[in-house]
Every structure is written in structure tokens, then in C-alpha cells.
Write a protein that binds this DNA or RNA. Structure first.
Length: 297
DNA sequence: AGTTGTCAAGCTAGT
DNA sequence: ACTAGCTTGACAACT
């Protein structure tokens, strides 16, 4: 079992998420920014290793505007050495990497343009992991998308768009239950139609579910993962007190977390903590699990 | 140097 | 009609 956090480490004084305004795009600006981001990513993974955190989500702006028509730079080739080195580090230490395209990526949209741009963005995400020469256990996780007042049609659009995706995208793509539109049951239905693996999000499940316990839910999602997909991964968070339903907690609630982990016994997924204070909660989680005698790689 | 409005992109529920 | 929330964070123009 690995513990991870998404996109940014606030303890090390750099981020791998530098971007810039589209209006100030230039070839040089892109190259400088990517170099800076890759340097920081290396530093972040080094810090993670030192602290026993073996799972990390790379932010989508690692290569800003990579899927935008403005970007003509062959960044995979330009930075092939850097990507390869990062990937070698990940493989050497048996770390896990994931990515999560943001909310604008909607492959079941009714708007063909949105679908097309979304596919481009999915290709970019896969290309980053490909450039690192990571096997297909490095996943790209995506929400199903919009409902548009007719879930049945929206699902069938998802299924048909999914089937058309390039193979290099499909082999990394997993779908995640969300807190409003597509619950775990919906995702499992899509999985049956497509073979796509389902990444279980515990907090979204708490917001929107069909009465399944954590244990049942984690178990049924895990069954959609094939051997080649690696250990199932789950997202974990909890509600921020006093805020709107769906707000992520600022720091980990250790008791709630350990309760969740207890429900995953025997499945032992890799756990991504979607919590605002990022690496701080990841450290708390690792420590809490070690105290319980859990083996954390 | 520090603050604040704005940023490529979408959708839904709540006010 | 408008905003919060989602991986909210980071840039860039302003005090």
C-alpha cells in the first residue's frame, strides 16, 4: 500500500505547476517553464522518497498549453532525457504516478469541439507518462462528465467516445465516481460496457451513493482492475466541517482515515489523499498507518 | 514587496 | 442571473 498526495508540495519551496498566460506564450517561455517544472518535479519525488510517500499525482500544467493549438514545441523530444530520468527514478523506487485532467475535460459533451479538445488533453496526459517510460499502472483518472438532463444518453455518448480513443490513452484511462453526477454504480455500469477500470473516490461516494458500504464499494471497484493495471488506487478525503457538501477537509481526520483503511483490508489499494494541506496530511497518514503496524512502501 | 483581479477550457446545484 | 465547488493555484498588473 502506498500513500500519496496531489500535484504540489508546499514544504519544498518550488512547484512543478508553473504556467503563464496564453497571451504571453512564446517558444522560449514554454521551454523555460517546462524545464523549471521538471526540475521541481524531480525535487518533489526526492522529498517524497525521503518521507516514505510513494504515490504522487503530477499536475496538469507540467507542460502548459501542451494540447493547445498554440503549442508547436515537440516537448517530449526536447525533454526526453529529463522525462526518462524521472521515470527511471520512479521505477527504481517502485513509486506510483497518476494524473487527473481537470474539469474542462468532458468526452461525453454534446459539443463536438469540447470532445475534440478533451481527447487532445487526454493524449497529452498519456504522453507525459509515456515520456517517462512508465508502465500502464501509471493511470490518468477522469470523471465521466456531464448529464445534460438525460443520463442514459450521456452514458452512451461516453461509451462510444471511449471506444474511439487512441490505444495509448485507453490503456491508462480509469474513471472515477463523482459527488453529483455519476456514482460508483454508474461507473461500474460503464466499466461493464467498456472494460475501463473504476477508481473509487471515498469522499465522492459519501456525497453520492446507492447505499453501498465502503467495504462493498472498494471491493467492487477493485474487481474492475486487471493485473496489468496494477494495484487498484483510490482517492480519499473527508468533508470540511461547516462548509458546503463536497468541500475537501483542510487537514486529515486521522480517525476517519483509519476507519476507511480498515474497510479496505485485504484489498490494500494505493491511496491518494485529496486534502488541502497536501504532503502534511500524507505524512500524518503514513505515521498513523505505521503505528498500526501497516507496511507502507 | 505585498496585494488583488484574472486566467483556455465545463458542468451542476444552490442561492 | 450568479456563484461555489471541483486538483484551486499561479500569473501579472497593480498598490
Amino acid at each position: 500500500m502506498r500513500i500519496g498526495y496531489p500535484c504540489i508540495n508546499n514544504s519544498i519551496g518550488c512547484t512543478a505547476n508553473h504556467t503563464f498566460r496564453l497571451a504571453s506564450y512564446s517558444r522560449k517561455k514554454l521551454l523555460d517553464t517546462v524545464k523549471e517544472n521538471l526540475d521541481c518535479l524531480k525535487k518533489t519525488l526526492g522529498w517524497n522518497l525521503e518521507h516514505g510517500i510513494m504515490f504522487f499525482r503530477i499536475g496538469s500544467s507540467l507542460v502548459p498549453f501542451a494540447s493547445h493549438p498554440v503549442c508547436k514545441v515537440r516537448w517530449q523530444e526536447r525533454f526526453s532525457d529529463e522525462f526518462r530520468e524521472l521515470g527511471a527514478f520512479v521505477r527504481k523506487h517502485r513509486m506510483r504516478i497518476s494524473m487527473h485532467p481537470d474539469q474542462f475535460i468532458v468526452i461525453n459533451s454534446k459539443d463536438k469541439g469540447i470532445v475534440k479538445r478533451s481527447v487532445k488533453e487526454l493524449e497529452y496526459h498519456s504522453q507525459v507518462l509515456d515520456a517517462m517510460h512508465l508502465d500502464i499502472t501509471a493511470k490518468v483518472q477522469l470523471h465521466v462528465g456531464g448529464v445534460y438532463g438525460d443520463k442514459e444518453s450521456a452514458v452512451s455518448r461516453f461509451v462510444s467516445e471511449y471506444k474511439k480513443l487512441p490505444a495509448h490513452v485507453k490503456r491508462r484511462l480509469v474513471i472515477e465516481n463523482d459527488e453529483r453526477c455519476y456514482c460508483l454504480k454508474d461507473c461500474l455500469g460503464i466499466s461493464r460496457k467498456t472494460g475501463v477500470a473504476v477508481l473509487f473516490d471515498s469522499f465522492h461516494h459519501e456525497c453520492y451513493n446507492k447505499g453501498e458500504s465502503f467495504r462493498q464499494a472498494v471491493g467492487s471497484a477493485a474487481k474492475t482492475w486487471k493485473r496489468k493495471d496494477g494495484r487498484p488506487t483510490v482517492d480519499y478525503s473527508s468533508q470540511k466541517k461547516g462548509r458546503k457538501k463536497g468541500s475537501h477537509t483542510v487537514t486529515i481526520n486521522t480517525k476517519h482515515f483509519l476507519g476507511f483503511i480498515r474497510e479496505t483490508k485485504g484489498i490494500d489499494p494505493d491511496v491518494m489523499l485529496e486534502i488541502k494541506d497536501k504532503e502534511k496530511s500524507a505524512l500524518k497518514a503514513v505515521e498513523a498507518l505505521r503505528k498500526k503496524g501497516k507496511k507502507i512502501r
